[in-house]
């Protein structure tokens, strides 16, 4: 799941740096992720995993790092292994 998140982050995150240079726990907003790009990423994740982010996960925190995104997806899919 981590690889797919990184792939979609590279494609939709409009980040000024390469995703490879960003650690799993690095703050994506500090790395240049805009609110709008995080929405694009959210929609891409929903499409890829065929899920819908629930209301309580539609916030900045859910998209604040690669590991936060993976944790949010794990919660949605109920796949605790993935986290």
């Amino acid at each position: 799941m981590n690889d797919i998140v990184r792939e979609l982050l590279a494609k939709h995150g409009s980040l000024p740096v390469s995703v490879d240079q960003i650690s799993d726990d690095a703050d994506l907003y500090d790395a240049g992720l805009s609110s709008f790009a995080s929405v694009q990423l959210m929609l891409a994740l929903e499409e890829h995993f065929d899920v819908e982010f629930p209301e309580h996960l539609l916030n900045r925190k859910s998209f604040s790092s690669v590991e936060a995104i993976v944790a949010a997806l794990a919660e949605i899919t109920g796949d605790q292994q993935a986290a």
Binding site: S35, F36, S38, V39, Q40, L43, E52, L58, N59, K61
Partner: peptide, 14 residues
């Protein structure tokens, strides 16, 4: 839209 809910939450958080 749904993305907008996240934008709104983000605007409030900040």
């Amino acid at each position: 839209g749904r993305g907008g809910r996240m934008m709104g939450a983000s605007q409030r958080e900040q």
